[in-house]
């Protein structure tokens, strides 16, 4: 049965794809650093403190997370990942977006003309319901369907 959630749109768009779920704070620098430095074709999570997604592919996925954490360079890191084509297709936040992630997705949209579809405030229930590998459909108005 499909489950529907409604959040707030930060960067709008439609996408249907595979979920990658981090139930703990997503450390942007630690997660992307290795793939950026090694100029990988696809980004695999290199954050050893995040066992749930460590080593898993992030590029093109629907990254489901509570918030991002870590270094204040995070906005630039996300933008760099996007410029290299390593970014997730979408980021779905259960909580209100944090300033580091907001900087990254907004600057990517405005300055690189690339969209990481972003919806926040989906609620704790969303993060409890979604599992890595689920198909997730995201709509322009902030609706999210888990299939």
């Amino acid at each position: 049965m499909k489950k529907e959630f409604k959040g707030r749109v930060i960067v709008g768009g439609y996408f249907k794809g595979e979920a990658l779920v981090s139930r703990k704070g997503f450390n942007t620098l630690a997660s992307f650093q290795k793939s950026i430095v090694t100029r990988a074709k696809k980004a695999k999570c290199s954050d050893q403190d995040n066992a749930e997604i460590f080593g898993k592919e992030m590029t093109g996925k629907v990254l489901c997370l509570p918030q991002t954490i870590g270094s204040t360079t995070a906005g630039l890191v996300l933008m760099t990942a996007a410029e290299m084509g390593l970014q997730p297709a979408a980021m779905l936040f259960s909580r209100p977006i944090d300033s580091l992630a907001a900087a990254g997705v907004i600057m990517t949209d405005v300055w690189l003309n690339k969209k990481i579809i972003t919806v926040d405030q989906l609620g704790d229930e969303f993060l409890e319901a979604v599992k890595t590998g689920d198909t997730v459909e995201i709509f322009e108005d902030g609706r999210v369907l888990i299939e």
């Binding site: 204040t72 360079t73 995070a74 906005g75 630039l76 933008m79 300033s99 907001a102 900087a103 600057m107």
Partner: peptide, 22 residues
């Protein structure tokens, strides 16, 4: 001051303004 990300700090300091929150 808020705890800003790199990049946004440059934008706010170029424009000479910051959003009032936090």
């Amino acid at each position: 001051t808020n705890r800003n990300s790199a990049g946004i700090d440059v934008m706010c300091n170029i424009i000479g303004r910051a959003p009032e929150y936090g």
